[in-house]
Design a protein around this nucleic acid. Structure first.
Lengths: 348, 348
DNA sequence: CCTATAAATAATAGCGCTACGAAACTGGCA
DNA sequence: TGCCAGTTTCGTAGCGCTATTATTTATAGG
């Protein structure tokens, strides 16, 4: 019996490789690779041959091989507390749009407001040698800060300014200022006392900052102010619950100004006020945060503070692409304050 | 002058490699690799040595190298129309949670309801040799279907059932049925005529299916029904606009049943009705879809149809992990109907 | 005490691509 | 025609890891 020839090794694993394309196009693999990275560096003839071969074979490059060889990958890690949060969702959508022309893809991680999860997520994401890392907030564990700094990967901290010094780049605004602006606005609407309603400030540091700014400004204005927080997430339902607590505790005051940590809570206040037949903005002026889609159509239309979540996304993309292109942004220009705007409508 | 020794090649590029860990732990690189993939296959002594070395050196494995060598990567591609859509956001959040224990990360893509974008996204995502691909809907271009099938990557189509035959696995529900259920519910509330309000059905195929189901069922029930659509996205503001169109065209009818393609539109109807002093549910019964967070707290509380977006996410994760574990799901069990529930509140 | 068998570890050969330098072409112009 | 500079193409050597096979070490049995 003839000993059968055993093919020693070879785990053919990918359908069509760059080598196949090269062979079909009648050029070397190097040329194919070059064509992908810089089409202009290749003659028109070779370029067309490659293009045709790619189409014929339906070739898609193996990003992992490319990433390994070049020690960089076309992914941008994005780590946010929760994607269900409309703010982050908007920013991510706009970030992605900005990243698109550079063919960078988003790798998503959610911390669920847990810093140890953030730690793990940063570590894993870093192991993809991402082109950049985008994280929400500037409040990170020492380990994470260290890891981030040591990695050499461009880091953009978003949605928060004014707290810790940014590690690298930052795009956002100061939430204490937002709170203060809300308090000032309510004061300007002849409110004699203020309250701030929020959900789980123990986890949501940015909501906590807004509360802090609100209360500090109230004090500076000489207005009595109270803070009602609840460990549950900041939802419409919670808005109703908190408003009832306000009624229970300040039921016989009028000209109360209510600042809400976001529009969901404000919406809950609106609904509950309607149920309880309280007058808005007569007895209770209500101010939201976020300028979510429903704010302008609510009845009465909700006064709120508009952050620019989409701008945060697009500016973040701009910074990342700029850094990639080797544009030497000075430190000054890579911290971008996107600001916010007080939008007065009918509830104040 | 002594000729300087030129180190030929060597692009040292990663801080700490597996080789460094091996050296420090006093074992071979193979053992380190083995330890990561299957800790039990390594002796306690070697395991501890590796663990310590990893900690000391703050080592993070290079996923691209691993992925290249093993021809598979720990990422799950997720392609949805828009992450700003609360439905998809919820599903993605829950999917991520389900994927977490397997250390699978999500790579996100948004089509913005553009099929050619979907095509491109599928192609790029595939080039990461993902552990699985999750796409919204079952309506894909022929090229995409072909690509997906040929790739051999597990595919889960989510949020839609009842249209095209799924390519591989599917988790969702039938949107025509949702529309029909809404029509039936309104009929059961003594409505004499029905309308359906929606935004951009030309793009959102699932909303189109709901509309279709609604109108077909109305016909079957012998009720007159009209469809008001608008090319703009389905927002609260649009709800108000559409409701005004309804008033203009059926202003003197009473007992009208309004089905909305989602809760945002329904909310807009509620607000506009309040402004126009129309009685809900007296003259106009309103039915939403989504059971979004605000639905139960609205005034009046919004009747709606609740999909189970979180279940879609967790079931999708379950299918992916099952497939990975090599559990041979029959075709039957890998199409999961998560159903929906009619939630009656005060607006009907 | 020595062999048979299992368990643990190590050596080897790529995975598919990119970076780099070398080779092979151009096309002037002396 | 020959030679040089510039352009285009190609060959080589890895990137850091995994899969597989080979080797060593521990365990047991006669």
């Amino acid at each position: 019996m003839a000993k059968s020839e055993t093919p020693r090794k070879r785990r053919k694993v990918q359908g069509v490789t760059m080598m196949d394309v090269a062979e079909r196009a009648g050029v070397s693999p190097s040329t194919v690779s070059l064509f992908f990275r810089n089409p202009d560096a290749v003659s028109a003839k070779a370029g067309n041959a490659v293009r045709t071969a790619v189409r014929d074979l339906n070739y898609a490059p193996n990003r992992m091989a490319g990433g390994l060889a070049s020690a960089s990958s076309p992914v941008v890690g994005v780590i946010v507390p929760s994607i269900r949060n409309a703010f982050f969702a908007e920013t991510i959508a706009s970030l992605q749009r900005g990243l698109d022309p550079a063919r960078l893809q988003i790798m998503l991680g959610q911390t669920e407001y847990d810093q140890s999860v953030e730690d793990a997520l940063v570590r894993t994401t870093l192991s993809w040698a991402p082109a950049a890392l985008v994280v929400a907030g500037t409040d990170h564990s020492a380990a994470t800060r260290q890891l981030l700094k040591a990695s050499g990967v461009p880091v953009v901290e978003i949605w928060e300014l004014g707290g810790e010094t940014p590690l690298d780049m930052a795009v956002g605004f100061d939430h204490r200022e937002v709170g203060a602006a809300a308090a000032r606005h309510l004061a300007s609407r002849a409110r004699r006392s203020l309250v701030f309603l929020s959900g789980r400030v123990h986890e949501d540091k940015r909501a906590a900052s807004r509360a802090e700014g609100f209360l500090a400004e109230a004090k500076a204005l000489g207005l009595p102010a109270r803070h009602f927080d609840h460990p549950a997430p900041a939802t419409t339902e919670l808005g109703g619950i908190l408003f009832n607590r306000v009624l229970a505790e300040l039921g016989n005051e009028d000209a109360v100004g209510i600042g809400c940590s976001n529009d969901h809570i404000a919406l809950g206040v609106l609904f509950e006020a309607q149920r309880q037949a309280r007058s808005i903005p007569g007895d209770y002026a209500v101010m939201g945060f976020g300028d979510l889609e429903f704010a302008s159509s609510a009845a009465p239309a909700l006064s709120t503070i508009r952050p620019f979540g989409d701008v945060i996304g697009s500016e973040t993309a701009r910074l990342i692409l700029g850094r990639r292109a080797g544009l030497e942004d000075t430190d000054r220009t890579s911290i971008i304050d996107t600001g916010f705007r007080v939008v007065q409508r009918q509830t104040t």
